[in-house]
């Protein structure tokens, strides 16, 4: 994936290239625009700049097709269903992949059928990873993938990301866990803090 001259807040334009099997970490303090950059890469907000993946430009692909390949996983997962399984694509291959991913990060298949309200924050967070990987996207844009997880679960998520990298995925990572992102990333970019405006709108 290649990004050219993406403008986020007051940071200078951002350009980078991250290949298949590589992991790019985005650093920067809170409010520096890490999430906005990831959302721009997933084409969730209008922004200035260009993004390419697999020879195609973002603006030339239909939004849903782009986001089918370039998957943004939010820091705070939200659900619109009672159980995780209902939120999965109906396709059988996707469903069994989600079950395998869930198992890899320490969740039994039964967790997919449990009411989400009865699960812990960490469990819901891991289920959102399983949901995001169900249809096998090529690029993962992970926003704080370890928030709310205990050290054992962090290790499992790290192993999952490593496995995805080995199988050719591209990962762009924004994490406050410096040690975690240092272990995974081949490259890093830093965003500056945007100056606080004196008056809120």
């Amino acid at each position: 994936m290649r990004a050219e001259h993406i403008k986020i807040g007051t940071s200078p334009p951002i350009s980078f290239e991250v290949g298949s099997g590589e992991c790019l970490a985005i650093d920067g303090p809170s409010g520096s625009g890490k999430t906005r950059l990831l959302r721009a890469l997933a084409d969730l907000d209008p922004f200035s700049g260009r993004v390419f993946f697999d020879g195609a430009e973002q603006s030339e692909m239909p939004g849903p097709a782009w986001r089918g390949a370039v998957r943004f996983v939010a820091a705070e997962p939200v659900w619109w269903t009672d159980t995780a399984r209902e939120a999965l694509p109906p396709d059988e291959a996707c469903r069994s992949r989600a079950v395998r991913v869930a198992a890899a990060i320490g969740l039994p298949a039964a967790a997919l059928d449990q009411p989400l309200q009865q699960l812990s924050t960490g469990e819901r967070h891991r289920l959102s990873l399983a949901r995001a990987l169900a249809d096998n996207p090529k690029v993962l844009l992970l926003d704080e993938p370890t928030s709310g997880l205990d050290p054992a679960a962090v290790a499992l998520v790290e192993e999952l990301i490593r496995y995805r990298l080995l199988s050719g995925n591209t990962v762009v990572l924004a994490s406050h866990d410096a040690a975690f992102s240092k272990r995974l990333a081949n490259a890093r970019i830093a965003l500056g803090k945007k100056p606080l405006t004196a008056h809120a709108p």
Partner: peptide, 13 residues
């Protein structure tokens, strides 16, 4: 439900 809609869009819907 902005977050729900954006989550579903992010999943390629």
């Amino acid at each position: 439900e902005r977050q729900v809609i954006e989550t579903r869009l992010a999943l390629g819907q």
